[in-house]
Amino acid sequence: MTGNPFLDSLDWLGDPLRWSGPDGIPLRTLEHLGYTALGVLVAALLAVPIGLYVGHTGRFKGLAVAAAGAARALPTLGLVTLFALLLGIGLTAPLASFVILAIPSLLAGAYSAIESADPATVDAARAQGMTELQILTRVEIPLGMPLLIGGFRGATVQVVATAMLAAYVGNGGLGRYIFQGLGSQNYPQMIAGSLLVIVLALVLDLALLLTQRITAPPGATAP
Rank of each mutant, 00 (worst) to 15 (best):
D8M: 09
P217M: 06
R176G: 00
W19D: 08
R18V: 07
E31I: 11
L45Y: 11
P223S: 12
K61I: 04
L165I: 05
G175Q: 02
Q134D: 13
L196R: 00
L52R: 04
T76N: 06
A67R: 03
A70E: 09
L165A: 08
G172F: 04
L52M: 08
V54L: 02
G172P: 03
V80Q: 06
L148M: 02
A125V: 06
L210E: 11
G150A: 00
A102V: 14
G51T: 00
A155R: 02
V42I: 15
L196V: 01
V54H: 10
Y53W: 14
M145C: 01
R72E: 08
S105R: 08
A93L: 06
G3T: 09
L174C: 01
S20P: 10
G55I: 05
A216D: 00
A66L: 15
Q185A: 15
A68E: 01
L17E: 14
T131N: 10
A43Q: 01
S112K: 14
I198H: 08
L33R: 12
N4M: 04
V54I: 05
R176Q: 15
P223R: 14
T211D: 06
G109W: 01
P218T: 12
G62P: 09
P104R: 13
L165Q: 05
L38R: 08
S194M: 09
G24Y: 05
A43K: 06
V42C: 07
L7D: 12
